[in-house]
């Protein structure tokens, strides 16, 4: 019994961690009013960069940081398009989702002799309890350190938004940029920085998969987690704790699918696989309902405009 419970916790956290990173990334961008649906692409390039750097350098943390860097660089494209060129943010998000994986696979094939997967890394993200045996309760709960980092990031973002001056500025920029401007807040500069931050976070999310869950990058490592994280942000009503909770819920449903499956299960495997998605919709209907995006979401800010 206890074994199952600890297993449930471990799988939940494993599944949700990449989504938490990407979700927080999406959140920080959206909070300042820039729609960022390109997190999937940023996750992918981060996943690749992390695995590649770790393979060549032998250091997982270096890989993790470079993953964030890669995601941030890709985000510059989105930031430039949305803020400088004031284009449709959804379109540039889609562009990022196409360019990110394309670039990742392309560079991978250059670095790894035509293969679109990296070689497995030998140094992965360390576990919480170190190299203990995998038996028993402690063994089950011995998860990647990125799980803890994700939680800290979420908590940190909560503090940022609700307990600091910076956070108030961020939210003001997202709700009423003209008013924020009159207060001397540099709207576009703040937005630009936050979009880059969102890329960095998404990159971390990608690395948490290729350096934590598995130990290599393949074309299918990131397949939909970015979009689910966007859903999580909306589910969580654009708050850090809401997004974190939504990611946990989703990871929990996946964990249930794994634990309920297997030879003895009566429920067909494919129906069980639908569980996380059905559960999300049910929860939305029962508990969440309407959510409101930041008011200035999606609208480029022009100095001197009224809104």
């Amino acid at each position: 019994m206890l074994n199952s419970v600890t297993l449930l916790i471990a799988i939940t956290l494993m599944y949700s961690t990449p989504m938490v990173f990407a979700g927080l990334g999406n959140l920080i961008s959206e909070k300042t009013g820039v729609i960022n649906i390109g997190v999937e692409g940023m996750m992918t390039i981060g996943a690749f960069a992390g695995a590649a750097v770790c393979y060549f350098s032998g250091n997982a943390w270096l890989g993790f940081l470079c993953a964030g860097l890669a995601g941030g660089m890709l985000a510059v494209l989105h930031a430039a398009a949305s803020i400088v060129f004031q284009c449709d943010q959804t379109v540039s998000g889609i562009a990022v989702n196409l360019i990110g994986p394309g670039a990742a696979l392309f560079i991978c094939s250059l670095l790894f002799e035509g293969a679109t997967s990296t070689q497995p890394v030998s140094d992965k993200i360390p576990k919480i309890f170190g190299d203990i045996s995998a038996e028993g309760i402690l063994g089950n709960l011995n998860m990647d350190v990125t799980v803890v980092i994700a939680f800290l990031m979420a908590a940190g973002m909560w503090l940022l938004f609700y307990k600091t001056k910076w956070g108030l500025h961020l939210q003001a920029v997202g709700e009423h940029p003209a008013a924020a401007d009159t207060l001397g807040i540099k709207v576009n500069r703040l937005r630009f920085g936050c979009v880059i931050a969102s890329g960095v976070l998404a990159g971390f999310g990608g690395a948490s998969v290729t350096l934590g869950i598995v130990s290599q990058f393949t074309p299918i490592t990131i397949a939909g987690q970015g979009f689910i994280s966007i859903a999580a942000v909306i589910f969580g009503k654009w708050t850090p704790h809401g997004a974190y909770g939504a990611c946990l819920l989703f990871g929990f449903a996946q964990a249930l699918t794994v634990l309920l499956g297997g030879g003895e299960s009566v429920i067909p495997s494919q129906i069980l696989a639908m569980l996380p998605y059905i559960l999300t919709i049910v929860m939305l209907v029962l508990f969440v309902g309407r959510g409101v995006a930041p008011k200035a979401s999606g609208k480029p800010y022009e100095k001197g405009s009224r809104t």
Binding site: A81, F85, D88, A95, V96, G102
Partner: peptide, 12 residues
């Protein structure tokens, strides 16, 4: 992706 990106930018 690049074409979509330029379509977005050129708008601005």
């Amino acid at each position: 992706g690049t074409i979509v990106f330029f379509v977005a930018i050129i708008q601005g």
